[in-house]
Every structure is written in C-alpha cells, then in structure tokens.
Simulated assay, not measured.
Amino acid sequence: MKVLGMISGTSHDGIDVAVVDFELVGSTLEGRVGHTASTPYPDALRSRLIAALPPAPTTLAEVCELDTLIGQTFAEAAAAAITAGGPVDLVVSHGQTVYHWVEGAHALGTLQIGQPAWIAERTGTPVLSDVRIRDITAGGHGAPLVSVLDGLLLGGREGGAGALNLGGISNMTVVRDGELYAYDLGPANALIDAVVTSRGLHPRGFDEDGKIAASGRVDARLLEVLLEEPYYRLAPPKSTGKELFHLAYVEQALATAGVRPSDADLVATLTELTVRTVGDGVRAAGVAALVVSGGGCRNPVIMDGLRGALPGVEVGPSDDLGAPADDKEAIAFALIGWLSAHGLPGTAPGGTGARGPRILGTLTPGSGPLALPAPVAEPPRSLVLSR
C-alpha cells in the first residue's frame, strides 16, 4: 500500500511530504521511502498564518480563509508529489496546527487547519486527516504521534534509545527494555525563530546553520530566568506549543531578567536553552543513543552543544535508520495512514498518556468508492525503512 504523508509542523514554514510503499512481511513492516519534498508556504500566506497564531487575536473569518488557503496549498503539494512519485492509495494530511489547548498539564483539545476536501478534490485520492484528536478524547495529549514510528524503529536497540525531534517544539520518545514513553521537552526552534523573524535577522525567518548563535554569547542571567519555566518540571506525559513559547514569552523573560542582550547574544541564549532542556531530558532517560531529526538537527550549534552535554551518548541523525531527518515526520504520518487503513492503532499510549491505543483520523473519500484493505489482526512488531 502506497501512502503519501504530509505535515507542516510548529515552525509553520512549509509542507513536508513523503511517499512510502508499505508491505507487511511476517511481523515486520517494510517501508520503501520514495519521493520526498518540502514546499515552502507562499510568503503572504505564512505572514497571515503567523499573524493569526496565539497569543494574537484573530477572527473566525480569518480562520476560515486560512483553512481554505492552507488546504489548497496542501492540495498542490500532494498533486506535485503524486506527479513525481506516481499514484498513491491514501493521502494523510496532518494540516497546520494553530492551537493546542492544554490546561493543568492535560490536553483538552487541538486544532489543525488545511481543509482536506481540497486535497481529495485535487488528487481524487482519499484523505486521512484530523489525526490527533482521537487520542485526546482518550485522555492523551495527541502528541508526540511520531512515537509510534520511533517505537517500531528503535525497539531492538541495546541500552535503550531516545528519538529526538527538533522542530518548533522539541519532543523525545524513549524506548528501553520493551517500554516506551514520549513527551514534549520544550522549545527547540520556536523562540529562536520568533526572534529571528521579528528582528529581521534572516530573510527565511530562522538561524540558518546556527550562524547567528555562533556569533553571540550566552547571557547567563537571561538563561537562568528562562530555565525557571514551570513546564520543565512537569512529569511526562506532557505537551506544549507556541501557545506558551512565543515572542511575548521572550520579551517577558527579558523584562524579568532586566537585561538587553544583542541580537546575536539573545539567539545564542535561546539556542543554549534548547541544548539545556534537551540535555536534561536525555540524561534523565538514561539512554545510550539519541537519534535526532527535524530542522534543528541541521543547526551545528545545537548538535555540538548536545554532544558536549551528553558524553557517552551516541548522538546521530535519523538518516542512519532510513528515515531522513528532514522527512521523518512526514514518514510517520504515512505510517499512521497505513495503520488506520488496516484497522490498527496509530498511537503508543506510553507516548501520549492515553488510556489505550486508538485508531486515528477522519476519512474524506476521493473520486471513487472508499475501499480499504482487509484488516490486520496483529500490529507489526518492527519497521524497516529503505530508499
């Protein structure tokens, strides 16, 4: 079964796609990764999206328009992927998260926009969407959903392993001795990107190759204030997002610290915040290896900082496991699509905190009758990816 996975993450910079051809061989699911790509949002659309995100006020009219415009952009990205990689049996669209409602350390709701009907209409292919909410209804956080992929990829590693994703928010899956748990650690690129964008430090809105951070020095007082954030001391499972970690959060921390660092020093300090919070989480997990994916793994300041903070831990990209670091989340959503289509849960309760595993998503039919493959009685025990 060939599945197209699509996601725009918390960095909201564009759409990542991955076509994966899955085949179940005994208890092992084999996935051949075909076409992958990343399509940036048009500048005007990205600006409107950023302007509508919390804590900014917005209107239902703007949400409706963004839902349509993002859905159309996803539809064009899906059509391009199908043209390049051939027909697919199912499209899985995560859409764009615009709000993740958490109170008292519990997720109560989540909203992803990007109307899937535009994808179904443009491609004629059924679309699985709205994949997080079912886990939340079962008491979970709806995140990190990539943990189901991590569990299948890393389950056999001796000494335990952590799978770290460095997107807007950092999240980690820990697999050790047959047990799995996962949670959001804190901001990875969210605060860095917010500062870079607001101060016009890079035309693409992020610290490319960590050059800005490398040119600055960490402000010890500001870092001390940032590390006082109560979220870091909550026990997993837990989830967070840009509802907490945004530009106004940085401005409040600056006011509390009573400092005015240079732009480079501010970016260096926020980068060190990512290194510290991730390092603390990995040390607490006690794993022997850390497999890293997401845009942050291309930032040498973060990666060098993690290697320095984690002596004795093997730190490397997820590419080594057949999941290219830039495409891993899109591959994960393709996997969720395969699981849902075969009547299998797409969650790992230890990863999200749900009462039990759940089959995920809402299906939008394509141009013909909706036909699903025969159900599979037992979920796969491992996943092998190849190109």
Rank of each mutant, 00 (worst) to 15 (best):
342 H>C: 12
344 L>Q: 12
347 T>K: 12
318 S>W: 12
341 A>I: 10
316 G>S: 14
333 F>L: 11
317 P>K: 01
346 G>T: 10
318 S>C: 10
341 A>F: 07
359 I>T: 15
322 G>W: 03
331 I>Q: 11
325 A>P: 02
344 L>W: 08
338 W>C: 03
349 P>T: 07
350 G>S: 13
364 T>Q: 08
349 P>G: 13
320 D>M: 08
305 G>F: 05
322 G>H: 03
346 G>H: 08
323 A>G: 09
356 G>C: 12
306 L>D: 11
320 D>Q: 12
356 G>V: 05
331 I>S: 02
334 A>W: 02
333 F>M: 06
363 L>H: 04
311 P>T: 14
320 D>T: 15
342 H>N: 10
357 P>D: 09
364 T>N: 02
312 G>C: 04
308 G>S: 15
323 A>D: 04
314 E>P: 00
365 P>K: 08
351 G>D: 09
340 S>D: 03
332 A>M: 02
324 P>N: 00
353 G>S: 13
360 L>T: 01
311 P>E: 09
344 L>V: 14
353 G>M: 12
307 R>Y: 06
358 R>Q: 14
323 A>C: 07
321 L>P: 01
345 P>V: 04
367 S>M: 11
313 V>C: 06
363 L>P: 01
306 L>M: 13
352 T>Y: 10
364 T>C: 12
308 G>D: 14
361 G>Y: 03
341 A>L: 12
320 D>K: 10
316 G>Y: 14
341 A>R: 07
339 L>A: 06
335 L>E: 02
333 F>I: 11
362 T>I: 05
358 R>P: 01
316 G>I: 03
324 P>A: 03
352 T>K: 02
365 P>R: 08
367 S>H: 06
333 F>R: 00
306 L>P: 08
309 A>F: 02
332 A>Y: 03
327 D>C: 12
316 G>C: 08
364 T>H: 09
325 A>E: 02
313 V>Y: 01
306 L>K: 14
